[in-house]
Design a protein around this nucleic acid. Structure first.
Lengths: 370, 370
DNA sequence: TTTCTTGCCGAAACCGGTTTCGGGGCCGCA
DNA sequence: TGCGGCCCCGAAACCGGTTTCGGCAAGAAA
């Protein structure tokens, strides 16, 4: 079990090659190869002998030596887009941890790259495909219409998307049921007594934005609250945009007393906007969001949110991709996981009704203007 | 699954190989290889012809085909340790961006892995070395005595450390001058009028902790303030520990009016501790820290801190490692970069003297106990 | 002129695997 | 006894590069 050799002394004794194993047993290296790869034309007895000898000698095939013939390098590709406002950054460590963990289990590795723009991501992706640096790719942050998908589909390279998209035939994916979270958030707020519940959606380029809006509407319907288009704020992916969206909502004649945000960062913008108007989160304004960013825990009061398990996502995506590379039908490789509610202090029964809130905002406005 | 085409084998036009280039020009493939790799025994004219033909035909050598003979896969290895309290997480995206960017520039790739424990990091590192998945490694979070270093030194595998360490002969490294930052923080607080300045250091397993303590002491000396061991708090790498360290400082007969923290997270703990005692940051208590975590900007008031440029660090580390792999002397591959001061609101002139502060804390205590 | 370099390149071995092809036993069956 | 078929496995080709070795021609030295 404990083979001293595999613990990395590469400088001294030469690597154990497949020929060493073959010579040790007096068989041909072709036989060793076929035995180790489970070919049916090698007898069980020989397979056993060979695998034991390989173990004993500490033989580990070099993946790049295999790749020269098989075209497979046993590596998963991951090209990240890292821009300054990347909302995915806090999850990155967990996500990478999940991916590499699952890859390690199968003795695969992960080849990673990061680019600042969509354009450069596509170029790097093409380069990695061209140079066969990975056998397949995980595509994070799927867009509604995603150039990467066409690139990989054309090159006939396996991939798995993190997030659904519009046209997903021939696509494998893993996604979180954001729509269910939005729906649950809405009914939860309704149950607390809110009747004016707004939604601040995510970026239009993401498919999930659409899904989450539908979830919000479904929540309203379940609670028997008619949908009011005025309560569907402009999109917000950042704190700043979230604050702006909130401003717009507060200038409504019948302002909402609760806001469901598609992403946590927008919700933190709501905090800021509320703060600026002297409204307290969890009192005059309730908020529920989605993502589970760490800042949400540090906000005051803590942000109630639906958190996604990024590590699990990474792990599942890696496993799906490996299956896909091994030949599974992409249509069979699709998974949905729920987000989990993290209850903190930002969602409470309304301290003011919408009318009272409007009155108070109006008073402030007049004071300001005096 | 029966007549399904294997996904791993790519369809479409065959790759352009070195033989294609050779045949196109009527030379041998050995000549093409030597020409493209800049061997001196190929005439300049031939080199030019060959490199142009390669360009024209779109020839790209497969790194794993090269690796089988050269042993070099043109890949940098990065094994991260990701535990739940990992203070490096917010920087990870920038760091990875820097590393992969620099690698891309040289047409290298980055092989990444993540493990939760030190033990598993070493095992994974050994596996990657053994399987030749990378030509060298970047070691983040260097410890005072680091097992990874011995592993790699023994295996004769190139590496570069992010952070200095005790015994660094034969080691290449890149580091941030945390000691200078601590010194500057201390003199800055002294210039604001503080005379009782405490230090909350980092974990003892890190070499930088020692350096930063020295920087703090140097700052005191420069300001003409004698070092008081009582003001050297217990180590703190987390918010919780930071709050605990602050508690201890506040129970001193002559409590500090300012705190220099080795890491931002500890400083955020100081915020919490001050808050709990009704002390306002930037008034009764001033704080300067180090790291530049995003939460520092969201704290109230914003945390004045010395920020490190993680992207640049990643980029420089990658470049140093590539040079190291190409044979440069590790002793020549050492770089120090400064941290940059981000002025926010947590460092101001003291609102109370140490004595007054002690008095006030004492009053509170008595009220509590009544 | 002869010999010795030197520059330049082709031929072939080589790296560590995989895969094709074919053939030697052994069995069953006529 | 002869023959076909099946089970195993060896031999060798192959993958796409790199590197060694040696030879030819031109120029320099004798």
């Amino acid at each position: 079990m404990t083979n001293m050799r595999s613990v990395g002394v590469r400088a001294g004794p030469r690597r154990v090659t497949i020929s060493d194993v073959a010579n040790d047993l007096g068989v041909s290296k072709g036989t060793v190869s076929r035995a180790l790869n489970g070919y049916p034309d090698i007898s069980e007895g020989t397979k056993l002998k060979i695998s034991r000898a390989a173990e004993r000698l500490g033989y580990r095939p070099l993946s790049h030596a295999q790749a020269i013939r098989t075209g497979r390098v046993r590596s998963l590709g991951l090209v990240l887009q890292i821009d300054s406002e990347d909302s995915a950054r806090p999850f990155l460590a967990d996500f990478i941890g999940g991916v590499t963990q699952a890859a390690s289990d199968e003795n695969w590795t992960v080849t990673i790259a990061a680019e600042p723009t969509e354009e450069r991501v596509r170029k790097t992706l093409a380069r990695l495909v061209d140079e066969q640096k990975a056998d397949g790719f995980i595509l994070p942050r799927t867009l509604k219409h995603d150039g990467r998908v066409t690139t990989l589909l054309n090159a006939n390279v396996p991939f798995v998307m993190f997030g659904r998209t519009v046209e997903d035939s021939e696509c494998a994916w893993y996604d979180i049921k954001g729509e269910d979270a939005m729906r649950a958030a809405t009914t939860r707020l309704a149950a607390l007594g809110h009747t004016r519940i707004a939604h601040i959606p995510g970026g239009d380029q993401y498919y999930y934005t659409q899904l989450r809006i539908e979830g919000y509407k479904a929540g309203l319907e379940a609670a028997g609250i008619p949908f009011d288009p005025a309560l569907l704020a402009p999109e917000a992916m950042t704190r700043r945009a979230g604050a702006a969206a909130f401003d717009q909502l507060m200038s409504l004649p019948e302002p909402p007393t609760a806001v469901v945000c598609a992403v946590d960062r927008a919700a933190l913008g709501v905090y800021r906007g509320a703060n600026a108007r002297g409204l307290r989160i969890g009192r005059e304004i309730s908020v529920i969001a989605y993502d589970g960013v760490p800042e949400g825990a540090y906000a005051d009061p803590g942000l109630t949110t639906f958190a996604v398990n990024s590590q699990q996502a990474g792990e599942r995506l890696a496993r799906l991709l490996i299956e896909r590379i091994r030949g599974a039908d992409p249509e069979d490789l699709r998974e949905l996981a729920p987000a989990t509610l993290v209850e903190r202090g930002s969602d409470k029964a309304p301290a003011l009704s919408s009318k009272e809130l409007a009155q108070r905002l109006n008073d402030q406005h007049e004071i300001k203007n005096v």
